[in-house]
Amino acid sequence: MSESNPIADLQALEKEALAAVKSAQDRESLEEVRVMYLGRSEGRLSAILRGLSQVPVERRPEVGKSANAVKERVSTALEARQSELVAPSAESELDLTMPGRSRWRGGLHPITQAVDEIWHIFRDLGFARARGPEADTVWYNFEALNTPLDHPAADEQDTLYLVDSVLLRSHTSPVQMRTMEANEPPIRIIAPGWVYRRDTYDATHTPAFMQIEGLVIDEGITFVDFKATLAEFARRYWGPDTQVRFRPSYFPFTEPSAEVDVKRIITRPDGTQYETEWLEIMGSGMVDPNVIANAGYDPERYTGWAFGMGPGRIAMLKHGVQDLRTFFENDIRFLEQFAR
């Protein structure tokens, strides 16, 4: 037997084996590589170790140590490749069905959303928003609005008083007078805001609630404009198929006065449709000439119309809320449903 160099053989074997490991493309071929190099009986490393007897005694420990080191390194490479073949790349260790990392979601109060939706329609119809104080005087809340305090009409809004002639406004209508005083026609405003009544809490009443006032004052404004604008609003808000009805009523500050009712067509999830009852959505009418005169305008020259509606009631109708108090409890599980 020629003089062999077992260390060099081991080095060559290691190089070859590692290359084979690297090039193995699946677990079967990797197993073949293992058997070929490390197999107990047929493996080439085993063969070298079996030939250790040919090696001079003094070199045996060195060669043996080297052979074991090669075995270890090839084994490690095999294991590493094995796990690579199970999960072919580091990126694909991700399980994308795991939940994502979110941030808290917030939301606007449902009544704010109702007010905003109503406001956006009126904005498109040329209106701006106006505001006034929540604590106001008897003059602005009643007298200027053609409602003498000794008339039964003043009873219908049982009022909360602060001192003498100062009260918590029982409707947003005082904003009509304040806006007329501070501006000149043409006036087209809505005024959302809190109003107060001497009511206890029940399913449909709260002592404080939101109202939206509307006012239009100009030359040549007629009952037809009034009907047309509010019918247009109702169809934009409730849907184009909505029927709108104007029903005579009485408010001291408008004449003629009307309640506005809508009847909606609702489509069920299965595609079938049904018609609702008439739903009362607002009180309205042509501004009473006494109100126009109280603002310092000439009622022969200027006419107009006004309305008042409750966005809380409208939100109840729209979202199927059964109890008005739910809006003020502010349970976040309720509010979350409106966080859209």
Partner: peptide
């Protein structure tokens, strides 16, 4: 009464 929307002047407010 009809409910046809006529021309309206822009609000001063």
């Amino acid at each position: 009464f009809p409910d046809t929307l006529g021309p309206q002047r822009v609000s001063s407010v």
